[in-house]
């Protein structure tokens, strides 16, 4: 599976509005607030792109947040993969967002997150979900690729890089 198979081009967020300059990474409540703002921005991008009804926006955001509360999806190396299942989608969809400043996300390595890939998948497609996670990890373990991704400033630049992701 390739990232372009499930990432929605029109939902990509080249520069998250969320910042955390005044947030103590050890302040769990404050970090939870950062997570909520990031996830809301990203789910909002998918909604704006027309991938589910506005009525589902809040519920999907809450579902991703609930999953995040069960254990961080900040897997280290400045990457996070917030995700959830939800009946509002009939196929796996996702979006990518960049933070220019880095955001606290309770990552496994304690480092801030600069690249977020959010996944929303149907309830009955666990295999697709695992394959999408694998595609993200396989791509993002290339440090040079991530460096180039983080340097992107437009949706078009990001999409072009996703289309030419290494490993295929």
């Amino acid at each position: 599976m390739r990232l372009t198979n499930f990432i929605v081009r029109d939902a990509i967020v080249p520069a998250l509005a969320t910042t955390a300059a005044d947030v103590n990474p050890r302040d769990s409540a404050a970090v939870t607030g950062v997570k909520e703002r990031v996830i809301r921005e990203m789910v909002g991008g998918l909604s704006a792109a027309g991938y589910f009804r506005d009525a589902d926006l809040e519920d999907i955001t809450r579902a991703v947040l609930r999953r995040e509360q069960l254990g961080t999806t900040g897997i280290g190396k400045n990457i996070a993969i917030p995700h959830s299942r939800h009946p509002a989608v009939d196929r796996l969809i996702g979006t990518l967002a960049l933070s220019k400043t880095g955001l606290p996300f309770e990552s496994l390595d304690g480092e801030p997150v600069y690249v977020f890939v959010l996944l929303v998948s149907p309830q009955d497609r666990p295999g697709d979900h695992l394959r999408a996670l694998e595609a993200v990890v396989r791509t993002m373990r290339n440090d040079e690729y991530v460096r180039q991704l983080r340097a992107c400033t437009t949706r078009e630049e990001i999409w072009a890089l996703l289309e030419n992701a290494p490993g295929w």
Partner: peptide, 12 residues
Amino acid sequence: SVWDLITLMAEQ
């Protein structure tokens, strides 16, 4: 390694 294990794609 979390990164390694995700690439196993071990389904039910």
